[in-house]
């Protein structure tokens, strides 16, 4: 596969993943509307059944293609310099974000593993039904009764799980730092993808680039806002 075809794949998968991030962030903003809205949104997604599974397979395919191409390109790029590198390498005229794409990318990958384990396979807290409330009352609010009431509920609440995780300082710190890393990846990636796809006419890159960078940080800071607001109880309680 030619170098340019590889970059087309990189750009197309990258932009598709950006599209996913925007949709995902949009969905997550339901957190600000409260438990019922957020859990309702999650339930709707889950009720899509096979469609959701298909979407997940497509997403996984995009990630794996992006990851595979990233490793291949990075490997080729590092051997192209040759055995002897420069002694003075400190004045490369490019942004750190553009030079560290594979490192920021690998951190994003690592984040994804943690993130999916935490929220897709994490144990959801069961909401307490009206009947549960009666039981708790009957037992004068004893802890064991609360526990029983929770466990006998029907649906687990994703909202509850998010609340639980985002009240832990280590988790909040981890999310904020990794979203900054994602912001760095995208601050080069989005504009780079348009350039790779050749969609820019002379002069357009200069015009479009600030908007691409702004979108990158909007996405990254948007995601970072969720754990921060949950932790401090700002808009999400």
């Amino acid at each position: 596969m030619s170098s340019i075809l590889k970059k087309f794949l990189m750009a197309l998968t990258g932009l598709a993943l950006v599209g996913f991030l925007i949709a995902h962030l949009g969905g997550n903003l339901y957190l600000f509307l409260g438990r019922d809205h957020f859990d309702g949104y999650a339930k709707k997604l889950e009720e899509m059944g096979p469609l959701l599974i298909l979407a997940e397979i497509v997403l996984a395919g995009l990630f794996l293609t992006h990851l595979f191409m990233a490793l291949k390109l990075t490997g080729e790029n590092q051997t192209a310099r040759g055995a002897q590198g420069y002694a003075d390498n400190s004045k490369n005229q490019s942004t750190p974000a553009s030079r560290w794409m594979w490192i920021t990318g690998l951190f994003v990958m690592m984040f994804l593993v943690v993130h999916i384990k935490m929220f897709k396979f994490g144990e959801r807290e069961k909401p307490i039904t009206a009947k549960g409330e009666e039981i708790i009352k009957a037992f004068n609010g004893e802890e064991a009764a609360k526990q029983f009431a929770r466990e006998s509920g029907e649906h687990g609440s994703l909202y509850g799980l998010v609340q639980k995780e985002f009240k832990r300082p280590a988790v909040v710190g981890f999310y904020v730092v990794l979203m900054l890393v994602l912001g760095a990846h995208l601050s080069h990636g989005i504009a780079s993808a348009f350039q790779s796809l050749g969609v820019l006419r002379p002069g357009w890159l200069q015009c479009l680039k600030p908007w691409c960078v702004a979108l990158a940080w909007l996405i990254a800071l948007g995601f970072a806002l969720l754990p921060v607001c949950t932790f401090f109880g700002i808009g999400i309680n």
């Binding site: 030619s2 170098s3 970059k7 080729e76 790029n77 051997t79 490019s94 553009s98 350039q195």
Partner: peptide, 21 residues
């Protein structure tokens, strides 16, 4: 492009260092 790839040059990462130099 084929000859460029065969010669062992790297791929473009759009860093823009070339344009600056």
């Amino acid at each position: 492009v084929k000859t460029m790839d065969e010669a062992g040059f790297g791929n473009c990462s759009n860093t823009g260092a070339c344009e600056a130099e």
